[in-house]
Each structure stands twice: as C-alpha cells, then as structure tokens.
Write a protein that binds this DNA or RNA. Sequence first.
DNA 1: AACGAACCCAACCGCCCAACG
DNA 2: TCGTTGGGCGGTTGGGTTCGT
Length: 346
Amino acid sequence: MGRAPCCEKSGLKKGPWTPEEDQKLVDYIHKHGYGNWRTLPKNAGLQRCGKSCRLRWTNYLRPDIKRGRFSFEEEETIIQLHGILGNKWSAIAARLPGRTDNEIKNYWNTHIRKRLLRMGIDPVTHAPRLDLLDLSSFVNPCLFNNSSWAQVNLSRLLGIDPPIDPEQLRLAMFPLSSQHQNSNPAPQNFQESQLINQQIQELPGFTTMASPLVQFPNEAQACQPNLVDEFPSNPTDLSSSSNSQMSDLASSLKEDYVPFPRYEYNYCSSDQSLIDRSSTNSAFNSHDSYQSFGSSSPTAMNSNSTYITASTEDEREISYCSDVLKFELPDLLDVNEFMYCQEPRW
DNA sequence: AACGAACCCAACCGCCCAACG
DNA sequence: TCGTTGGGCGGTTGGGTTCGT
C-alpha cells in the first residue's frame, strides 16, 4: 500500500537535526543549490532521507523564514484564506511571506482552531457551530419561549414556508449569544445540526461566516439574493464554479504571489455594504507592493483601520468575533422588534 | 519541589500527482 | 497509454516545554 519510501530506511538518521547537519545542508545548498533531493543528502554527506532534507530546508533553514509569533494581521489573513481555500496550507503560506505551510498548519491547529471552537465557530466550515447555538439568549424570551406567534412570524419574515421547527430555529440562529453566555455546551446530534445549518444557509439573505470571507468583485454581485448558492460550500469547487467571478478569484488564489483585491462583504440589508478594502490595503494592490511587505513589516499586510491590532488571545478573539460574524438579514426583519425586552449580549 | 496534564511544534508518514521515458 | 519516479502536500506523531495542582 502506497509507494515505497523515497530512500533506504536503514542507516539513515531520523529525529531532530543537529547544528552540524544543518550547517552541512546549508553549505551544500549555498554551493550547489537545491534540486534533486534524493541525491542531495548523499552529496552533502548527510545520513538523511532526501525528504527530510527538503523539509528541513523549506521549513527551517531557508533564509527567508520569518520566526516568531504570528501578528494579528497574519492571523486574520490565515483565517480569511482558510475560509476560501480550506486546508491548503501551502496556498495559504504562499500569501504569507516568510511563513511555511507547516508553521501555518501548526498555528492553525494549536491556536486559531481552538479559538474558533471557543467562539462557537466551526473551524472547518467557518460557520457557527449549531450545537452551541441558543437563540433564546438573544431574542426576547417572552416572545420565543411563550409565543407561537413570534415563532411563526420570524419564520415568515425569514421567508421560510412552512415555518421551520422553532426549536431548530432556536438552535440555528445567533451563535454569538451562546459564546458570551457559554452556558449551553450540551452536544446536539451532529447530523441534525448539519441539516439545520443547511436549512438556515438556504434562507434568502442569510449568510454565516463564509460570506464575509468572500471577496466580491462588485457590489451588484454582492447584493444579489441567495449568495450562499453562488458560493460553493467546498472551497475546492471554486475553480469549477459557474460563477465566473468566483472562478476568477479561485484562479487568482491558486497562482502564487498574485495579489487579489479585497472586498469585505458586511451585510446586505439595504443599500450597501461592500467596503472596498483594496484602497486601504496596499499590500494586495500590486504585485510589487505585495512582495515588498516581507518579513520587515508584517503589519503592512493589512492596514485597514477597522482592524484592531490585538495583542492578547482574548483581544484577538473579541476583535475577530466582532468582525467575522456578520449576518445578512432581509429588510423585512426588524431585529429591534425582538430586542426591546432584553439587552443584546454582545 | 515534584508530578502529571496540557500544550507546542519540528519532524515524519503516507498519499497524491505531474513529469518523464 | 502506461509505469515509474520525484517532489509536494496534508495529517499525525512524539518529545520537549510550560502550566497547574
């Protein structure tokens, strides 16, 4: 099963690299460059597998590697790109100069993923985790706990006919409330949650976290209904999307070091809200400027003033939380109607 | 101070795929 | 067209470090 190892296992060293081995590898590559990784270790006098040498070089010894903590801007970029590309760590790394796919993958798994989970966001789908949702903490409990009228009307306002199960709706909406409350960790049936999520995603005008991550090329595109349908749930399907603009975006993302215009899609309740961030995001405006923001100035990557550079984990969490989860509600739905009796929790 | 738990991350493993003969 | 190969990728592991009791 699977192909044979790239080299003889016997006699080859494994485990942590010593400084001497590092030096041998660096010296050899400086002298001869890298190319044939299979023969490289032998020529360099290393008792290592070629693969091991390649990994060591690309993940650690390369001169342009940036070390140290990820900046908030880098983290934000990772999250955004992950929302589009999924676990394509190398593709993400290609847009974070000085960072390796391995480093980003590790950072995702050890930091970002956990934070998203804490925030009630599914790190895989970037959608709110339905097993943690608790609508009643957001909506006036008088209306929702005691009034079928409110349940029916909310369904109607959301354009669902017949109305979805109020319990499902309760489960499916307003994720942030449960994050702040953090009082309802009881696991729900996963399949049920998926089903509910699907229902909610299909609501006209309702989008979850995937939407803010979508880079819409123009406002008209962004404000069309059923945006979720326009955007493949599987990031890998982007390139085959019938939507040519999405396809173009995917194409641009697949090309290394090609900047793409960034538009933030906030919500679409009335007459806006596409914020063209490309004008403030010089790093993505041109090839040249992109390449220029290397290790010396990570903050140049995202200079938009709406993004707060948060230093602590909690600050990052709050900042991300406020920015990422933006819902798109139909014009008909006046949220205030549901909020009079209870102060919102965010 | 000692110990176990939790965390972090470098390195490895196995699969995939493009290139090539 | 098919088989082989090398390089690349994402997932996983395990050892070192930090944290909590």
